[in-house]
């Protein structure tokens, strides 16, 4: 320490350095305190604002929070004999929701793959168009699914296809961005090797890049599938078919159909938890299996 300070021209005493350090540390602490205070003020005022804009107040509603679940559970318990029948009845709707999510993820992943290849430096077919494709993906990510779904419902009529297209659109943008980050880390050597033997762009991508990035792609796609199941359930609620639609119907019916609502809640919950667990298991497998160089 003494040597270090001595070697610096115009060296200052260690006491001065200490004072400077403490000064910097103090200033930093003050800044942090101010930031925390601003953040706290924002949170509190935001909460109070939201509370005042809400139809029912937070403190009035707090003790009612379990009223509705109680009502639903009470009725479901009363009619618990119906539960298996209800579950069997809504299983097709659940499968529809799952299908929407799966098809949207598949199509989104395919489109996202193409978009990501087109927007990665070193891989792009048209290097000049990279910013264009990046902006395109940004826009695709920015459009909330509900916007596209509602427009398509207006044109195509209610059903699973509008939801599927809407989710696929958003997914291609979101996955495209993640995929292109993966692509940046791919080795270019196989691509150059393939180029040297006269492979076309498609062949270079499929044979040179895909084997390197496939595990990461799959892992991201699985994560997205999980997100898309939630999205397709929500879109069902605004009229796009699947279990969300059934849930809305039984909810708006009110007392008398809460046993059905409970069955749907249960189905949705079990599905989300199940897919969550499965996908995290497979993602673990993919990230750890990659070290062995296993492709699929």
């Amino acid at each position: 320490m003494a040597d270090l300070t001595a070697s610096v021209p115009g060296a200052r005493s260690s006491a001065q350095i200490r004072a400077d350090y403490l000064e910097i540390a103090r200033r930093k602490r003050v800044y942090s305190a101010i930031l925390v205070a601003i953040f706290a003020a924002l949170m509190i005022s935001g909460f109070m604002l939201a509370d005042s804009r809400n139809a029912g107040g937070f403190w009035d509603g707090l003790h009612q929070i379990f009223d509705f679940p109680k009502l639903v559970i009470a009725e479901a318990w009363e009619k618990r004999a119906n539960l298996p029948a209800n579950i069997a009845r809504y299983l097709p709707a659940l499968i529809e929701t799952l299908n929407i999510a799966a098809v949207a993820t598949l199509i989104g992943a395919m489109l996202g793959t193409v978009l990501s290849m087109l927007s990665t430096r070193g891989l792009a077919r048209w290097p000049r168009a990279i910013p264009l494709f990046r902006r395109l993906m940004d826009v695709m990510r920015a459009v909330p699914e509900i916007v596209i779904a509602l427009i398509l419902i207006f044109v195509l009529g209610g059903g699973p296809v509008p939801a599927m297209i809407a989710i696929a659109f958003h997914t291609s943008g979101a996955l495209g961005k993640l995929f292109s980050e993966v692509n940046e880390n791919a080795s270019l050597k196989p691509v150059e090797g393939l180029a040297s033997v006269g492979a076309t762009w498609t062949q270079r991508m499929v044979l040179g890049v895909m084997p390197q990035v496939a595990p990461n792609y799959l892992s991201y796609a699985l994560l997205r599938f999980e997100i898309n199941i939630r999205a397709s359930a929500i879109l069902g609620f605004v009229g796009a078919g699947g279990i969300g639609y059934e849930l809305k119907n039984s909810m708006s019916w009110g007392i008398g159909k809460f046993d059905e609502a409970a069955a749907i809640f249960l189905l949705l919950f079990l599905t989300i938890v199940g897919v969550d667990q499965l996908s995290s298991y497979f993602r673990n497998l993919l990230t750890h299996g990659r070290k062995k160089g296993v492709f699929l």
Binding site: R53, A55, Q64, D67, F68, L268
Partner: peptide, 15 residues
């Protein structure tokens, strides 16, 4: 989705 439904019963619609 489900949280929204449950909570809007207690707090009413709003932000």
């Amino acid at each position: 989705l489900i949280w929204t439904i449950v909570l809007s019963r207690a707090f009413g619609p709003g932000p």
